[in-house]
């Protein structure tokens, strides 16, 4: 089964094509302009260099976030257009799952962190199970990293580019409990999105193209302010 996967959740743009367990191609780069400007071109290039067309693809996978709102919308909208025009099935993969998937061979907790700005991180906790594979222990979360660290009392492997900003804090708080994933697996790879997507296809967890939506976690600023104002007016 050939899966084309896309990730645009962060500043990296990653597109991958797998055929079953075999990687055909993965293009990952630090996008110097907007994702929207390059994404279809990247897909076109990857397929052309693989001597394939969209007709040879069996399914599409997209990294749903959390991450940059605009980046996520670009990935999801592009996949929607591809699916609509090619009638291919789509699966969505949480971006944090794809990050955790980069860190195998451990019985420790796995904690991917993506900078969510405003002093917070997008995160979730995972554990690798020999039989069941990657098990997600929490929801997708957005939180103050200090609060996150207070809840961890066992060996944990951190991954994700959030380490760049919060590595020092993690070291200071958790000391020897914390290990950091090597740099080459700290970023999202569309191949991981593709493999996780493939396992969803195998389980027949296909998503409706129309309702497919990014995982934002955070409401918009306008909604937050509106709720605050509503709460204030309820104060006697």
């Amino acid at each position: 089964m050939r899966i084309l996967a896309i990730d645009t959740a962060t500043h990296l743009q990653s597109v991958a094509l797998i055929d079953g367990e075999e990687l055909i191609a993965e293009y990952t780069f630090n996008c110097p302009v907007t994702h929207a400007k390059l994404l279809v071109g990247t897909i076109e290039l990857l397929l052309r260099n693989s001597n394939l067309t969209i007709d040879h693809i069996d399914g599409l996978a997209v990294s749903l976030g959390p991450g940059s709102f605009t980046g996520l919308r670009i990935g999801v909208s592009t996949v929607k257009g591809l699916a609509l025009a090619s009638a291919k099935s789509v699966v969505g993969v949480p971006t944090l799952d794809a990050l955790a998937f980069n860190v195998p061979f451990t019985r420790n907790l796995i904690c991917p962190i993506i900078d969510a700005k405003k002093g917070e991180v997008y995160t979730a906790l995972y554990r690798m199970d020999e039989i069941k594979g990657l098990i997600k222990m929490t929801e997708n979360l957005v939180m103050d990293p200090r609060v996150l660290l207070e809840t961890i009392h066992e060996p944990v492997i951190f991954t994700g580019e959030g380490i760049k900003i919060y590595g020092m804090l993690i070291n200071k708080t958790l000391g020897k409990l914390a290990t950091f994933a090597p740099v080459q697996v700290r970023t999202v790879h569309a191949a991981s999105v593709a493999y996780l997507g493939l396992s969803k296809f195998k389980q027949c967890i296909i998503q409706d193209v129309a309702s497919l939506a990014p995982i934002y976690i955070r409401p918009s600023e306008a909604e937050i302010k509106w709720r605050e104002r509503e709460l204030l007016t309820k104060v006697p």
């Binding site: 909208s77 592009t78 929607k80 025009a85």
Partner: peptide, 15 residues
């Protein structure tokens, strides 16, 4: 704008 643009590009590319 990006939502419409991304969908339009993909459709044009596939078709």
């Amino acid at each position: 704008l990006l939502v419409g643009i991304c969908v339009a590009k993909s459709i044009a590319y596939v078709k």
